[in-house]
Simulated assay, not measured.
Amino acid sequence: MYGNGDDETPAWEKPSRFAHVLADAAAPKERGREGIAPPGWPRGVQPPGLPGWEDTAVAWLFDLCPSGYRGHEVLRKHPLILARMARQHVSAALAAARHGYGTARTELGDTVPAAVLDAVLRMYEYEGSRAAATERAVRLVEEALGGDRWEPRL
């Protein structure tokens, strides 16, 4: 019913038919060129290697985390640790969307009308897809902060 209409599996759980292409295109290279961003790189974050790119990455990562994280100097001084914590926070949001989607029918089925339940499932599917894409983007930023660079593929 959700996703492609075949079953109840949310879209973020289904492999993309382009997954192999994206995986090849985003493969990190030891000696890649500076200023190249792989597919899935977050908007608003400069490509790795450009002047000030780490500042844009840090600002984006802080936006993903609870506001209290901004008060910890260790996260400003060590962007790789900030990336790790942002990844964990986004992964938890993805897990929550998966859990919510999986339990919505049994927990809400008798308490809300069917149309409301369908809307809730669509919301979980949308938010889960968004969290999965954000998790991939955080991993790319984390890899770049660790020194990985990418080569463009034709």
Rank of each mutant, 00 (worst) to 15 (best):
M1K: 09
Y2M: 09
Y2C: 10
Y2G: 09
N4T: 13
G5Q: 03
D6V: 15
D6P: 02
E8F: 05
T9H: 07
W12C: 06
K14Y: 09
R17C: 05
F18P: 09
H20D: 14
L22T: 15
A23L: 12
A23Q: 15
A23C: 12
A23S: 14
A25V: 11
A25D: 05
P28H: 07
E30I: 14
E34Q: 14
P38A: 14
P39Y: 10
P39D: 01
G40D: 08
P42M: 05
R43Q: 12
P47I: 01
P48W: 02
P48T: 03
G49P: 05
G49E: 09
G49L: 06
L50I: 08
W53V: 07
W53A: 06
T56S: 13
A57L: 01
V58T: 09
A59M: 09
F62P: 03
F62L: 01
L64R: 05
L64P: 04
L64M: 09
C65N: 07
C65I: 02
C65W: 01
P66S: 13
G68S: 03
G68K: 06
H72V: 04
E73H: 05
V74E: 14
R76C: 01
K77P: 00
H78L: 04
L80W: 00
R84V: 07
Q88R: 11
V90T: 04
V90P: 07
S91R: 15
A92R: 08
A92Q: 12
L94H: 13
L94P: 05
A95Y: 15
A96L: 11
A96V: 10
H99P: 01
Y101P: 12
A104W: 04
L108D: 10
G109T: 08
G109R: 01
D110P: 01
D110Y: 10
V112Y: 00
P113L: 00
A115M: 14
L117A: 06
D118M: 02
D118W: 05
L121K: 09
R122N: 08
Y124R: 11
Y124S: 06
E127P: 11
E127A: 11
S129N: 11
R130G: 02
R130P: 02
R130Y: 08
A132N: 03
A132L: 10
A132H: 04
A133C: 12
E135Y: 13
E135Q: 15
A137S: 11
V138R: 08
R139K: 15
E142M: 06
E142R: 04
A144M: 08
L145A: 04
G147K: 04
D148K: 15
R149W: 11
